[in-house]
Each structure stands twice: as structure tokens, then as C-alpha cells.
Design a protein around this nucleic acid. Structure first.
Lengths: 196, 196
DNA sequence: CCTACCGATCGGTAGG
DNA sequence: CCTACCGATCGGTAGG
């Protein structure tokens, strides 16, 4: 039966996507079943399909929504009139903040994207590569301007982005230090590791 | 039918474990099927069960073998007659080397351990916590001796261990720089990030 | 080590 | 939004 997409559908869909992000984070995409999700949302499994097309669509929406947020932020940073080292700090603070405030979605987009179906998988991988290239360019400019140590920029990107993934362990722990403290500690360690 | 465990069984089992590590890394534990594994090993799925007890056992063996290697190394480092900063460097070089030389197993133990069944899951989590505590102690000693910046030691551990996970992206890429270069680059970035 | 097969669970659909 | 259900696939076993 054809359905008109109403406002209520949209908000209901958003609730389902949000719940799926939490579920995929907790159990992993493959191990999470639509019946698990239905319990979380409070309906029967079959009812979910009045709002979404498939399980794959949920993962797709999570991953590309997150990717878009990072891409837009990167474009903003690139047009900033600031030194590369400042830009790097802005990028790192943004990553840390996203990982703290938007944990479920960021975590899923980071660890479960490999279960995307083609052609989205290739698309996502390309976006990922492109983002890292632009991130490395900022570092490379910092090296050329003598603000950053002469390291391999690509390696630095790998280290920095993965290091931020460490927030996952903090999120799951008893939060012995606050988010602000965490951010400052991480920045101190990471920035002073690349600053000359 | 009862079977005597012969040398041939053991080596056959090791082949299966090795193949499963590669498979679990490529597809993820849940998405990898025993039929996938059988194809890799070159037998029918049912035949695998003459050598192993279950899929869960494979993951268990991979995770705990890796954990034991790290634990033994940590014990060795703790008895070293060296400055904390030197110990930290030894620990980091070991992690980097393991990630390069023993990639499939280390990656699986790092990313797929959550699919362990109880009571092994709790056991593994405890070992993990214990290892990180001992790692943090080395950093804390370095702080107290004035060799390492006054950062939160637990946060530093999270960053360092996760940063090394970045080697995964290097492993899957076209290896633009060598393993030695990667190791030196990572160490430069990480150590200089915690060195006062 | 293989053939044959089982019960459980999966994502998803039909129809109301 | 629910009941009822489907075909596919899963981990694993029996028996030879």
C-alpha cells in the first residue's frame, strides 16, 4: 500500500534511526537484529518497515549523516584565515566534541561502515579517503610553514583520528574525568606530539 | 566418536585458527560463517568440527593467545632496570611491531573480543583492564619522575593504544612507507606528545 | 573427511 | 501497527 510521507512518519523514522545507532553500537551491525530494534522502539518487527525500507538503509543513513557533518566542518576550516596549526587544533576539537556528544552515530559510522552495501560502500570509502587527504593537507602546510615537525602527514592523520577513537573507552567507563578535562588532556598529548 | 589428539590434529587446528583470524578480520566475527571458513581451509563445513569444538572456541583462542603475549611482555618490561620513559618506548615499539607482524590476530582480539561468550568475556575484560592499569602505572611513574608531562595517565593510555590501531589503515593501504618508517614516525609523534 | 540434515534465527512481505 | 508466514542462512550433529 502506498503511503504519503507525513511529518509523523519523519519523526518516527528519526526515532528508529536513533535507536538503531544505539543498538548497532552495542551489538554490532551484523549481530543486531530487527527484532532487537523493534523491542527498543516498542513495536513488532514487521511494523518497522512502515517507516524504513531495510536494515541496510539505517546503516546508510547513520554513516552518511555523520560523514556530511565532518565534510561541512572541514570545508569551513579550509576557508579559515588561520595558521595550519590552529586549523589542526580546530579539527581535533571538533572530532573530540562529536565523539562525546554524538557518540552512538559517530562510533557506528567509524566501526560498522564496512557492512554498507554497494554502491554506497565504495562511495563511503572514497569520501573517507578524501577527508583524510584534506586533513593531511592541513598538516602538510603546517610542516612547510615550520609549525609542525617534519613527520609523514598521512601517518599523523591515522594516529590522530584513531587516537580520538579512544574516547569510546572513556564513554563506556565511569567517566573518572569530565568531558572538558578529557578534551584538554587529549589535545595536550596530541598537539604537543606534532608541534615542533 | 572419541579421537586421540595427534600432532597432525594440532597443526591442522592451527591452520584453521590462522585462517579464522584472517576471515574474522576481513568480515567480522558475526558476519563470517563457518562455511566461509571451510572454503578457505579447503574442506566441507562439517569437517571443521573434527578439529575444533565451535566457532566461539576459535575467537577465544585468538583473543587469549594475543592477550598472553602482551601480558608476558608487560611483565618483562616491569622488571626492566630502566627509566619509565624508556619502558614506555619499549611498550609502544612492541605494540607497533605486533600490529605489523601479527596483524590479523591482533586486530581480531582488539575489535571482535566483544563477541566472546561468558565467562570468557568477563575474563577478557578484566585482563584488558588490568593491562591498561599496568600500562598507566608506567606512565604515572614517568610523570612523578618528571620525564613525562603531567597528563591524565589513563587518558594517555587510551590515546596511545588506540593510535597504534591506526596501523590497520596502513596495513590495508598500498604501504606508501615501510614498516620501519611507520614505526619511527609513530614513535616520534606519540613520544614527543608525552615527553616534557 | 563427506553427505545429509536439524532447529533456530535472520531480514523482509502479504494482507488486513 | 499487528498476525502470520516465507525462503535463506546460520552453527552444529549423526552416521559412516
Amino acid at each position: 500500500m502506498a503511503r504519503i510521507q507525513t511529518d509523523k512518519d519523519i519523526s518516527r523514522k528519526e526515532v528508529i534511526i536513533k535507536a538503531s545507532a544505539k543498538l548497532f553500537r552495542e551489538k554490532g551491525y551484523k549481530a543486531a537484529s530487527m527484532r532487537d530494534l523493534a523491542v527498543k522502539v516498542g513495536v513488532e518487527a514487521a511494523s518497522l518497515y512502515n517507516h524504513i525500507r531495510s536494515k541496510a538503509e539505517l546503516l546508510h543513513d547513520i554513516c552518511f549523516d555523520v560523514a556530511n557533518v565532518y565534510f561541512e566542518h572541514m570545508s569551513m576550516v579550509e576557508t579559515m584565515d588561520a595558521a595550519p596549526l590552529v586549523k589542526l587544533e580546530v579539527l581535533l576539537r571538533f572530532h573530540i566534541k562529536q565523539m562525546i556528544e554524538n557518540f552512538e552515530e559517530v562510533y557506528v559510522s567509524d566501526r560498522e561502515w564496512r557492512y554498507l552495501a554497494e554502491p554506497y560502500l565504495s562511495n563511503y570509502q572514497n569520501q573517507r579517503r578524501s577527508y583524510r587527504k584534506r586533513f593531511a593537507n592541513v598538516i602538510q602546510q603546517g610542516i612547510e610553514q615550520g609549525q609542525i615537525s617534519p613527520i609523514d602527514a598521512s601517518t599523523a592523520v591515522l594516529i590522530l583520528l584513531h587516537a580520538i577513537g579512544g574516547i569510546e573507552s572513556w564513554q563506556r567507563s565511569t567517566h573518572k574525568i569530565s568531558g572538558e578535562e578529557l578534551e584538554e588532556n587529549m589535545l595536550t598529548i596530541l598537539i604537543h606530539g606534532v608541534k615542533k
